[in-house]
Computed example of a mutant assay.
Amino acid sequence: MSHGTLADEIRRNLGELSPAERKVARVILAGYPSAGLETVASVAERAGVSGPTVLRFAGRLGFGGFPEFQAALRSEMQEREASPLSLYEAAGVPPGDSDEGTLLARSGATFSTAVARTLAELPAHDLETTVTLLGDPKRRIVLRGGRFTHLLARYLGLHLMQMRDAVLLLPDRDVERTAALSGLDRRDVVVVFDYRRYEPDALALAQLAAERGGKVVVFTDTWLSPASAHADVVLPSRVSSTSPYDSLVPSLAVIETVVAHVLAALGPSAHDHLRRTEATARRIGLV
């Protein structure tokens, strides 16, 4: 695969598949990733095609057969579930560069490549849709972060609060969070940050928002959060790092890109809102 997940590869090749092979692709994408681990006979029955069609589908993706496709899928699923501990134990002790220049060069190469690839692979349509949704003054923006990614949710939320009204960071306390989510409706845009190891509440929140008719934007990694199944927009980022911890640097670059475009889309209204917030902050002695 050139980059991304097997799901990405399947989507990129849909136009090259025969009608019958596209049926197989849709069955696998609809139940991704578990559907891809079923038997050839089971996938064929669900897609309404023959067994050989399933085998040809795998061949179209460059695999020697369906078992090879499934092996690649299992490997991807193991990467999805990786933790800092498992990554540390798999790689051993990180190299201790005594030369500061070597350390900086290695970090620079890793992070710059991850950011460049993330932005190059970012679907333009999804970026444009995100900007449209976040810049719509008739919609409320609700942001949810995770164990580490609450930092990203807060960062994006604080920027949006300076540009527009109706921006809510989900509170941590159960009663407050429940109250905030009880009022979700079709006017809401729920922004979910969820990276491996994925958190169950992210999936539940995305599903709830979709059921209520709201829009869902998911920031995630290249293996895709399960919440992506209910998303209108998915913005994946590379997480390459020089440590066992996944890097959020590329995701921050995506957020900065979104912020810049939302500001431009809002135009004079964002300027007016910034001016009012600045005046209010001065009035109450915060600046």
Rank of each mutant, 00 (worst) to 15 (best):
Arg12Gly: 08
Arg12Asp: 15
Asn13Tyr: 15
Asn13Ser: 15
Leu14His: 08
Gly15Cys: 13
Gly15Met: 12
Leu17Gly: 02
Pro19Tyr: 04
Pro19Glu: 02
Ala20Ser: 04
Ala20Lys: 04
Arg22Lys: 10
Arg22Thr: 11
Lys23Met: 05
Leu29Thr: 06
Pro33Glu: 02
Leu37Asn: 00
Val40Arg: 02
Val40Pro: 00
Ser42Met: 14
Glu45Pro: 01
Arg46Ser: 03
Arg46Gln: 04
Gly48Glu: 09
Pro52Asp: 13
Pro52Tyr: 12
Leu55Thr: 14
Phe57Arg: 01
Phe57Asn: 00
Ala58Phe: 07
Ala58Pro: 09
Gly59Asp: 03
Gly59Met: 02
Leu61Asp: 05
Gly62Leu: 03
Gly62Ile: 03
Phe63Ser: 08
Phe63Gln: 10
Gly64Val: 00
Gly65Asn: 10
Gly65Leu: 05
Pro67Glu: 09
Pro67Gly: 07
Pro67Asp: 07
Pro67Val: 04
Glu68His: 08
Arg74Val: 01
Arg74Phe: 01
Met77Thr: 06
Glu79Pro: 04
Arg80Asn: 01
Glu81Thr: 11
Ser83Arg: 15
Pro84Ala: 07
Pro84Asp: 11
Leu87Asp: 12
Ala90Ile: 15
Ala91Leu: 13
Val93Pro: 11
Pro94Asn: 08
Pro95Trp: 11
Gly96Met: 04
Asp97His: 01
Leu103Val: 09
Ala105Val: 12
Ala105Gly: 07
Thr110Phe: 02
Phe111Asp: 03
Phe111Ala: 03
Ser112Lys: 08
Thr113Lys: 09
Thr113Glu: 04
Val115Ile: 13
Ala116Gly: 11
Ala116Asp: 11
Arg117Lys: 12
Thr118Gly: 00
Thr118Phe: 02
Ala120Thr: 13
Ala120His: 13
Ala120Gln: 13
